[in-house]
């Protein structure tokens, strides 16, 4: 464990807590993409299959349980409890255009052609594009609530911090995982446009409103 990875995990934790607070306090899921949350649930389920078979640390297990638990709770809030406030018309990204290519790529490019390894690789590739339905929804509605912007900033920062973690691990431990790094770079690049808007607008107290 290193400071970059710890900050990354804390940023990820903060993102999930911000999202839950937004939903619980406003009792609304307006502006939140249910499809992205379903993709995140798929990512965590696929990646944490070893939750019961390999123990790494209390921290690792607790975080995995928390991430899986909260993402399914988020889906429950979106599609059941606060269903009336879910904006399905704007949440129209065709996720099959993500899952099929990512699934195919996981079969072709992986560290080892073994079931658990391919599923892990699928979760890594899927995570890098899982935010697209959410960003697409914001571009369609033309704006994002400030709290949603904070959620996205924390979520984008988490993988950017993981990139720092991988740089550190390469020099400190000689550790390098090309698949995780490439997917992490793609994932972070997808947020760049949003990071620019967040820093130039939200930091100055304005709302993010894309030219519709």
């Amino acid at each position: 464990m290193n400071i970059f990875r710890l900050c990354g995990d804390m940023s990820h934790l903060a993102a999930i807590i911000i999202l839950l607070l937004k939903m619980w306090k406003t009792r609304s899921v307006a502006g939140i993409s249910g499809k992205s949350q379903i993709l995140f649930a798929t990512v965590f389920t696929a990646r944490y299959l070893d939750l019961f078979t390999s123990f790494i640390s209390i921290y690792n297990t607790c975080m995995k349980v928390f991430f899986i638990g909260t993402v399914y709770f988020t889906i429950y809030l979106i599609y059941m409890k606060f269903k009336a406030t879910y904006d399905s018309n704007h949440d129209s990204f065709r996720v099959e255009f993500l899952i099929v290519p990512v699934g195919g790529l996981a079969f072709l490019v992986n560290h080892e052609f073994a079931p658990l390894e391919i599923i892990w690789t699928f979760s890594i590739y899927l995570e890098s594009v899982a935010i697209l339905p959410q960003l697409f929804m914001i571009s369609k509605t033309g704006e994002a609530e400030t709290i949603t912007s904070h959620y996205l900033f924390a979520l984008g920062s988490y993988r950017a911090l993981y990139l720092c973690n991988w740089i550190y691990r390469y020099y400190a431990e000689g550790f390098f995982d090309l698949i995780a790094v490439v997917a992490g770079v793609v994932q972070t690049i997808l947020y760049c446009d949003f990071f620019y808007l967040y820093i130039t607008k939200v930091m100055k107290g304005k709302k993010i409103s894309l030219p519709a």
């Binding site: 990875r5 995990d9 990820h12 070893d50 390999s54 790494i56 690792n60 975080m63 995995k64 991430f67 560290h111 390894e117 892990w120 993981y162 973690n165 991988w166 550790f175 390098f176 995982d177 090309l178 698949i179 995780a180």
Partner: peptide, 10 residues
């Protein structure tokens, strides 16, 4: 050299 995969990460 096959690098160890990042399974200890979240």
């Amino acid at each position: 050299k096959q690098w160890p995969s990042s399974k200890d990460e979240l």
